[in-house]
Computed example of a mutant assay.
Amino acid sequence: MSFDLPRNVILPVDKVDVRLDPGPHPFERDNAEAIAENWRREMGANPALFDGTVVLLSALAYRDGGLVGRCHAVKYSTFMLWRKKREASGAEHAYAHAMLVAGDNALVAIRMGAHTVNAGRVYFAAGSFEPIDFRDGLVDVDFNMIREVREETAIDLSGAERGRRYHALSTPSGTVIFRRYRVNEPADEIARRIRAFVATEAEPEIEAPVVIRDATDLPDGLMGHMKPLIEWHFTGGDEVP
C-alpha cells in the first residue's frame, strides 16, 4: 500500500481506517543517532520543546472514498528530524483540523505562540495524532479534533454541528483531514472567548485567534495548506453547509 493517494486536491472522505502498529517505525529505528543529535540542536535553539509521543505514518492510501493507513508511535524528536528528511524517508505525517465555522459563516483559526515550532503561523487549532487518540488501535479523528481545540482555545466543540463527512488534502509535506464544526456564536464572540482564555495561561500555546471572513481575507503567516481549505469553505465545498 505504502503512500497511494492523489496530491494537492481536496478529497471527500467517508471513513478513516488508520491503525496504530505497535512495532517501531523504520525511520525511528534506523536513525537513532541522527535523531538524538538533531534533538540536541533543536533544544539548544528552543529549550521549551518537549519530547513527547506523536505518530508517523508508514502507509496511507485513498480507497473507495476512505483513507486506509498504518502508523507508529514515535518520539517528537523523531518527528523533528523527519521534517528535515521527508524525501525517501518511508514516513509521512497526517493530522486533523476542526474547521471552526462561526454563526456568521466566518472561520476562526489561531496564530501559534512564539515558543512553539510553528511560531507565528496561522492554521486551525490542531495537533498531531497521539496514542490517546486511538480506540482499539483505530484513530478517532473527531476525538483528536475536539481535544486539540479545547486544549488550545478552551472552546468545546463536542456539541457543535459537524459536517456530514471528512475531507482530506494531501501534499508532500503531510495530509490534513478536516471537517466543518459549526457553532451559533458570531466570530467576534468566539475570538473574544479565546483571547480571554489565552490571557489566563502562563505559557499559552497560541498567541491569538484569527478570524477569516472570506476567501480573499488571508492573514500573514498562513500555513500553505490553509489557502485551499479556506477557498473550499467559502465556495461551498461539495457538501451542504
Rank of each mutant, 00 (worst) to 15 (best):
V211C: 04
R147L: 12
P204S: 10
R147A: 10
L138F: 11
N144R: 00
T116W: 03
E152L: 08
T116A: 05
A125K: 01
R121M: 15
I206V: 15
L157H: 01
R192V: 01
I177P: 04
E151K: 13
V210Y: 01
V176M: 03
T116Y: 01
R193P: 07
P172S: 11
R165W: 12
R193Y: 07
Y166D: 10
P186S: 10
V149R: 04
P172A: 09
E148M: 04
G127V: 10
N118S: 09
A199G: 12
R179V: 06
R147G: 05
V117C: 01
G113R: 00
R192Y: 04
Y181Q: 07
V122I: 13
V211S: 00
I194K: 02
D214P: 04
R193N: 11
A187G: 12
F143L: 12
G221H: 04
A126M: 15
L222V: 15
A168H: 07
G224E: 14
D220W: 12
I132T: 10
G137C: 12
D220L: 14
V183C: 05
A168I: 02
G127N: 15
M223H: 13
G120L: 06
N144Q: 08
P131R: 14
R150P: 04
E189G: 03
R162L: 11
A126Q: 14
S128D: 11
P172E: 14
F143P: 01
G113L: 02
R182D: 11
I146K: 00
F124Y: 10
I146N: 02
P172D: 14
F129P: 06
V117N: 05
I146F: 06
N144Y: 05
R195F: 05
L218E: 02
